[in-house]
Amino acid sequence: MDENERVQNARKEMEQLVADSLKSYKPPVGAFFTNLKEATKAIADGSIRWARKNSLWPMQFGLACCAMELMDFGSSRIDAERKGYLLFRGTPRQCDVMIVAGWVTKSVVPEIKRLYEQMSKPRYVIAYGECAVSGGPWWESYNIIQGIDQVLPVDVYVAGCPPKPENLFEALMKLQEKVGGKVEDKQE
C-alpha cells in the first residue's frame, strides 16, 4: 500500500509540474511556424506599417511666415518628393500629416478643429516653428493661443524661427519611426 501511494503521489506531482510549465510557456514573437494565426497577423501588420510610413502625405496648413519655408521644402532645391511626401494636398480626406506652421489666433481655432476631425485615421500632427510650439514672440498678445497643443494632440515639435527646411526633414523621419512601430503610438 505504501508503494502504491508513493507512486500515485509522484504521478500527481509530475502531472502538476507538467501543467505548470505548460501554463508559463509563450511562443516567441518573431518566431514563425509556431502559430499560423499569429504569424499572418505579424506579417500583415508589418507590411501595412511599412507602406504607411513611406508615403506620408502632408496637408498644407501654412498660416504665416513658416509657410514660406514649407514652400521651399516642397520645391526643387530641397525636394520633399524623394522621400515620399508628395505634393501638398488641398483636401483633408487624403492626408495623413497636418503640419501646423504659423501663429494660431482665437478666430482660426474652430477651423483647425473642423479640419482635424475631417482627416481619416490614423492621423498625426507636427508643430512647426516657435509660434505653434508655445506662442512664439506673440505670447503676450490678446488674440493668440499659446501653442497648438492646447487644442490638438501633437506628435513632433520643431523649434526655430523659422526652422530650416532640413529640420522638417528630420522631424518627418522621426515621425516615420513612430508610424513604423518603434515608439509607442496611441491611436483610438
Binding site: L63, A64, G102, W103, T105, S107, V108, W138, E140, S141, Y142, N143, I144
Partner: peptide, 13 residues
Amino acid sequence: GFLHRGVEKLVEN
C-alpha cells in the same frame, strides 16, 4: 482678422 495679433499694442511695452 484671422491673423491679427495687435503689433501696435505690443510695441508700446
